[in-house]
């Protein structure tokens, strides 16, 4: 796929307000289900998705530290929120607010992950762009093994300075109409 991408022609496509992207993966992160909204937006047919690793659509602007944090959160059995930039098959991109939860079967065994993605709102995207850029820059100065952990620690420390946990930070970015909940 990467060979077809021309970054200069890459343009943003958007998820509609009333649309949800739903995908499921097995416990190793391979896609087991993707809904039609996803296939249309990402421009992949089902046959090219099933069994493929979910990082198929990962965008290079996304810092690895965010994914490291996601896996750590999921492995602790908690849900993960993230503002994420993804590639489409043709090299365009879109922003989503991803919410990933571990999926357990009736015997309480981890079966996979369930991911719902909503449109994130402009404010959230504008806020995370400079943060992600700093993280990517930090990662580029470190070796591959230590970069994700280092940029993740930087992110958490930076948010801590603003008095935020990671989750409270992401939830604070949502437009009021996305979450009917007021912060307690």
């Amino acid at each position: 796929m990467a060979s077809q991408i021309h970054p200069s022609q890459s343009r943003e496509v958007q998820l509609k307000e009333d649309e949800l992207i739903v995908t499921k993966t097995d416990s190793t992160g391979h896609i087991t289900y993707a809904n039609r909204v996803f296939m249309q937006l990402a421009e992949y047919p089902e046959s090219e998705l099933l069994g493929k690793p979910h990082n198929l659509i990962r965008h290079p602007d996304m810092p690895r530290g965010v994914y490291r944090l996601m896996w750590k959160t999921l492995q602790a059995g908690r849900e993960f929120f993230g503002v994420v930039k993804n590639y489409t098959a043709s090299g365009n991109y879109y922003w989503v607010l991803a919410n990933v939860t571990p999926d357990y079967d009736s015997k309480n065994k981890l079966e996979g992950y369930f991911s719902v993605r909503r449109p994130p709102g402009r404010r959230a995207v504008e806020t995370v762009i400079p943060i992600y850029a700093r993280m990517c820059q930090l990662e580029s100065t470190l070796n591959k093994a230590s970069a994700p952990d280092a940029s993740m620690e930087w992110l958490l420390a930076e948010l801590d300075k603003q008095g935020h946990s990671y989750e409270s930070f992401v939830l604070s970015l949502l437009d009021p109409h996305l979450s009917t909940g007021r912060s307690a």
Binding site: P119, L174, L178, A184
Partner: peptide
């Protein structure tokens, strides 16, 4: 913890 509210967006 009352901070995690249900998100109704996208649901009909």
């Amino acid at each position: 913890d009352y901070s995690r509210r249900p998100l109704s967006q996208g649901l009909p």
